[in-house]
């Protein structure tokens, strides 16, 4: 059974498992979208998926390349304007779980998707925050999925695009934010969860075959581990089959670029 799946498949499957059947989920493009749809096609068939383009309770048959693909609208229960999406549904507090990714993350799960280097003279100008600044504070809780590397898991962010646990502890409250913030960071190596008091993200479980040293090596800060570390069960045959079929349908639908 070992090594018949990739670390990235394990990441998506671990993220999907974190979602529940009664979640109302604000979905980002890429890894979050794959995880949310895998959850919907396996254990969480009633999960409500919402994309910021305005599509509510959508059931895409293939993964969207962009946040507003026609597939999302055609399979949605209904579609609202973008101002309504951000005002009534997100700001109004109707979303239980928001799913984010980023270029950089720190130990309190603050995220950077804006610039590498300084804002005024960036080394790399990234696309920017999009919906993230308000998703991060308005959803009941936040899940984050990112590939685990020293370049991404950094001691200090170049720019704080969206709030995680701020400087730790109850820092979110200082900004008038009452939602839980990041409760899980799911990587291709492990799952991090916040320390209940300090809110520093610590390793709660390791994916099968992954060592503590690997995680330490791939993290830019001195990462801590919970006393009891669970091992993530490997992907089931069904999870792998559904995920691979989803990716195959998506590939066929988007056409392969030259």
């Amino acid at each position: 059974m070992s090594a018949n799946y990739s670390p990235s498949e394990m990441m998506t499957i671990a993220a999907a498992r974190a979602l529940k059947n009664d979640d109302v989920c604000f979905v980002g493009i890429g890894a979050p979208s794959a995880a949310c749809n895998l959850a919907r096609l396996t254990h969480a068939q009633d999960i409500v998926l919402i994309y910021e383009s305005g599509t509510i309770d959508t059931k895409p048959n293939v993964l969207p390349l962009s946040i507003g693909d026609g597939e999302l609208c055609e399979t949605a229960l209904f579609t609202v304007s973008v101002p309504e999406m951000f005002r009534y549904w997100l700001q109004g507090g109707r979303i239980t779980t928001g799913f984010l990714g980023g270029a950089q993350i720190d130990k309190f799960a603050n995220l950077n998707t804006t610039v590498v280097g300084s804002y005024e003279k960036p080394k790399v100008r990234l696309p920017g925050g999009g919906g993230a600044p308000e998703i991060a504070t308005s959803c009941g809780q936040i899940f984050i999925t990112m590939n685990h590397s020293k370049r991404a898991f950094v001691e200090k962010l170049d720019f704080i695009t969206s709030l995680g646990h701020g400087k730790g502890g109850d820092d979110r409250k200082k900004y008038g934010v009452t939602t839980a913030g990041p409760t899980k960071v799911i990587t291709d190596l492990c799952v991090l969860e916040p320390d209940p008091k300090t809110k520093e993200m610590m390793v709660a479980s390791l994916h099968p075959g992954v060592t503590r040293e690997q995680v330490i090596e791939a993290t830019g800060w001195a990462i801590k581990f919970f006393d009891k570390i669970a091992e993530m069960p490997p992907p089931t045959d069904k999870e792998l089959k559904v995920l691979r079929e989803l990716h195959a349908r998506t590939k066929a639908a988007h056409g392969e670029a030259a």
Binding site: F86, R87, Q91, N110, T114, Y119, E120, G129, P133, E134, A136, T137, S138, F159, I160, T161, S162, L163, G166, D171, R172, Y175, G176, V177
Partner: peptide
């Protein structure tokens, strides 16, 4: 007006 940018850095720049 809206509940926004809380704890985010864009208001600085």
């Amino acid at each position: 007006m809206f509940k926004g940018y809380r704890g985010a850095e864009l208001p600085r720049v």
